[in-house]
């Protein structure tokens, strides 16, 4: 019997490709954001509202992943920004190779902010780096305050939490304070925004944060 000592992360290959994606994005002046949430929290709506508001100031592109259909890409295509739909055919998350291959379709475009809209799932996408600067988790007020406790890895691995559908609060027994308390117990550094993509309430703060963050990142990558 002999023992071969290895010490290698199981997802090391994905991490390496993600790192090379990140370098490629940096070279091209792109800041990538990995948007994750349950299905139906409002990732596509947030992307739509953000691009509508900011596309005169900064250049966007979107890579969007779903198990089936190109419905999300069709919505984003209406905003006249470069968009690539990844159909995962059942896979529950995007990985760095899928993102790299999708990016080749838009690599000659002028892009400053790349939104990577992950498959709607609070479990698997938490594990797979894609080359993003940060993960942004969305949660909507209809999902329950306990989600951060039930799906802690995702909340732990994110930098930003966007609480969407606050316009529905009058109709729900939902405590934003409790949700925030739970989220901050998992990740005390989370930056939290409360928004409604339907009415536009609260989105201004998110827009300002995003613009500022992308510009700071681009300046850092140029230096």
């Amino acid at each position: 019997m002999s023992v071969i000592t290895i010490e290698r992360k199981i997802l090391q290959k994905n991490d390496e490709i993600a790192l090379s994606n990140k370098k490629l994005f940096a070279e091209k002046g792109i800041t990538a954001y990995n948007l994750v949430s349950s299905p139906g929290s409002g990732k596509t709506s947030l992307i739509e509202r953000t691009i509508e508001k900011l596309k005169s100031k900064i250049n966007f592109a979107v890579i969007t992943g779903d198990l089936q259909t190109s419905l999300d890409a069709q919505r984003i295509d209406a905003l006249n920004v470069p968009v690539v739909q990844i159909v995962t055919n059942g896979a529950c998350h995007l990985d760095a190779t899928l993102v790299r291959n999708a990016f080749t379709q838009i690599e000659n475009e002028q892009i400053e902010i790349l939104f990577i809209e992950n498959v709607g799932n609070l479990v698997c996408p938490a594990e797979f780096q894609l080359g993003e600067k940060m993960k942004i988790t969305l949660i909507s007020t209809t999902e329950g305050e306990d989600k951060p406790l039930k799906y802690p890895v995702m909340f732990r691995n994110s930098n930003v939490l966007i609480i969407n559908k606050i316009d529905l609060l009058p109709f729900l027994e939902f405590s934003i304070a409790k949700l925030k308390e739970n989220a901050l117990a998992i990740n005390g550094n989370l930056k939290i925004f409360e928004v409604s993509c339907r009415t536009g309430e609260g989105l201004e703060n998110w827009f300002n944060f995003l613009l500022n963050d992308a510009k700071l990142n681009a300046a850092k990558n140029q230096a």
Partner: peptide, 9 residues
Amino acid sequence: DSKVVEIVT
């Protein structure tokens, strides 16, 4: 994290 640490042959 999760790692492969050794292979026994």
